[in-house]
Amino acid sequence: MKEIMKDLLSTGGVSGCIITDREGELIDFLGDGGIDDTLVSALIAEITKEIEGQMKIPTDFTISALANNGNIFMTVRKDFILVLLTEPNADTGEVRLRLRRGAKLLAKLI
């Protein structure tokens, strides 16, 4: 798992990689020490619940959210949520591609 996370973290502009379960319990984290991984996990799980509740969709969806000071990329799978935090200038196309690839590999492990 750490190898997959390391690979994701090597993508330009990625500052943190978080794996959490759907209840917001942190599974693993790799990245900048300044990131509050527990808080991010909890908030990401809340977003996931909001989307599932509002849109009545099952699993397997991805969100890219871009803001002035940074971006969040997250992909929701049956047993986990993979999250990448990036700098504002990160290549969004590449990050999304790596996120999807990383989620496929993690699905085999978790």
Binding site: D36, L39, V40, L43, I51, M55, I57, P58, D60, F61, T62, I63, S64, A65, L66, A67, N68, N69, G70, N71, I72, P88
Partner: peptide, 14 residues
């Protein structure tokens, strides 16, 4: 998370 103003979101759904 003090990440500034949200500008856009992109949802890839089934």
């Amino acid at each position: 998370l003090s990440m500034g103003d949200l500008r856009n979101i992109f949802l890839e759904l089934p």
